[in-house]
């Protein structure tokens, strides 16, 4: 069971109060992008055993979307942060580095 703290309302919400929104920090390939980039945007997702960044929606609460950084192997939650960002905050990256030195995830790490 996963408990994530919503960064907007501060509620420690159970997984069942949230709606999963898939991978975080995707870049939408705009019209004019090449087919390979658009295919990657649509279909190619990370499936790591370890550090992962996800989107979640606090659907049985304040209704806001947020991001979560967690480990898929140990279920450790490194932190949650608002969705209005294209990269995880430094504090969360530092926390991940403390728990898993040398981690990397897409462009981050």
């Amino acid at each position: 069971m996963l408990i994530l703290t919503c960064p907007y309302c501060g509620v420690a919400a159970d997984e069942t109060e949230l709606t999963p929104g898939g991978e975080a920090h995707l870049t939408r390939e705009a019209p004019g992008s090449d087919d390979a980039a658009f295919e990657a945007y649509l279909f190619q997702r990370e499936n790591p055993k370890g550090v992962h960044f996800e989107r979640w929606r606090h659907s049985y609460g304040c209704g806001k979307w947020f991001h979560a950084a967690r480990c898929t192997q140990t279920l450790q939650v490194y932190g949650t942060y608002p969705a209005q960002t294209s990269a995880p905050p430094q504090a969360i990256c530092d926390k991940i580095s403390g728990a898993r030195p040398g981690w990397s995830w897409r462009l981050f790490g």
Binding site: C9, Y60, G61
Partner: peptide, 12 residues
Amino acid sequence: QGCPPGRMRRTR
């Protein structure tokens, strides 16, 4: 501690 009187908890 989790739900003291006066706390508004939206949940299911």
